[in-house]
Write a protein that binds this DNA or RNA. Structure first.
Length: 303
DNA sequence: AAATCGGGCAACCGCGCGCAG
DNA sequence: CCTGCGCGCGGTTGCCCGATT
């Protein structure tokens, strides 16, 4: 049953590619295309895993790749899109012809995130670091929620990967809806986006670590108790899994509950003018930094 | 001149999803 | 329907090389 293994991992070569290997791979792909990577190493005469071949090709050998430094415009676009999408490099790279996700990811990790920090902006949340510190202070004195079995931490969803403080009562960006809109604009074919006109956020995500509360609480009750959860959840999800569509909400009788939650999210975003904000951001990358803080207006990344 | 440090980047790793068998 | 691989993706690692001590 199933397919045979793609390669014998014990015998495949690892490490840097040699010019000879590059030449073989390039010759093969130019003659036969790039279908079925698992068979490429054997057909091209390479002792590599197909996965390694695909990576080498897409990140280095692929035609039309740019190998020169990032331009100012590209930097601005990366920063803006990262603010909207988080580290979804595949989506970001769709707007940067000739660049690879690995390129952009490395450039972000080594250059852009440092530039942001130097300017006092948290590269994860894209908010002034001073504001984050204030938020943390506010959180520390926030009274615990004990009703409905909700733990004090359960309404502050955090992406374990980045551990970003995802709570702020006036967050104008990073709501899941906002991010979803951007993804839809950038990639109409994105799975789970266009197919779900009434995109449903999984409200139970906000209580995912509290099974008792999950069973007991209705979405309305949850929102009533934790009005900040809608915003906080959006903030966290800006860097987490936002592909929660049909697969996430399809079963378990969550449909009506989900709809109520969505309505709350929609209302919240509408109040904040998120729709217009997205349109402005996409029309003018400088808008994001020029909107409120003169110190960060027109970042001038290249200087 | 040698040793150490740190930045940059290529490549690998592990996971989730879709689908072939 | 179930299993497990192919593929794509994001995160991480490790090597190389230039700068610094």
């Amino acid at each position: 049953m199933g397919r045979p293994p793609c390669c014998d991992k014990a015998s495949v070569k690892k490490g840097p590619w040699t010019p000879e290997e590059d030449a073989k791979l390039l010759a093969y792909t130019s003659n036969h295309g790039t279908g079925n990577w698992t068979s490429v190493p054997q057909r091209a005469g390479l002792k590599r895993c197909g996965k390694s071949c695909r990576l080498r090709y897409t990140n280095y050998l692929r035609p039309n790749l740019k190998h020169e430094n990032f331009t100012q415009e590209e930097e601005d676009l990366i920063v803006t899109l990262h603010a909207m999408l988080g580290s979804r490099w595949s989506l970001i790279v769709n707007q940067l012809p000739g660049r690879t996700d690995n390129d952009v990811k490395n450039y972000w990790n080594t250059k852009l995130s440092k530039k942001l920090r130097q300017r006092g902006i948290d590269p994860i949340t894209h908010r002034p670091i001073t504001e984050l510190m204030e938020s943390i202070g506010t959180l520390a004195i926030r009274p615990p929620h004990t009703a409905a079995g909700a733990s004090s931490s359960s309404y502050l969803p955090m992406n374990p990967a980045d551990q970003a403080p995802a709570f702020h009562d006036d967050v104008p960006y990073h709501t899941a809806l906002q991010q979803q809109q951007v993804i839809t604009l950038l990639d109409p074919d994105a799975p789970g986006v266009a197919a779900s006109p009434d995109h449903q956020l999984k409200w139970s995500d906000f209580l995912a670590d509290d099974a008792a509360a999950l069973e007991a609480a209705t979405p309305q009750a949850v929102l009533g108790q934790y009005p900040e959860a809608a915003v906080a959840g959006g903030g966290a999800r800006a860097y987490g899994d936002i592909d929660s569509t049909a697969a996430d909400v399809g079963g378990g009788g969550e449909d009506s509950a989900g709809s109520a939650f969505i309505d709350a999210m929609l209302d919240s975003d509408k109040e904040m003018g998120v729709d217009q904000l997205i349109a402005d951001l996409l029309a003018d990358p400088a808008y994001y930094y020029g909107g409120g803080s003169s110190s960060t207006s027109g970042m001038g990344w290249g200087c």
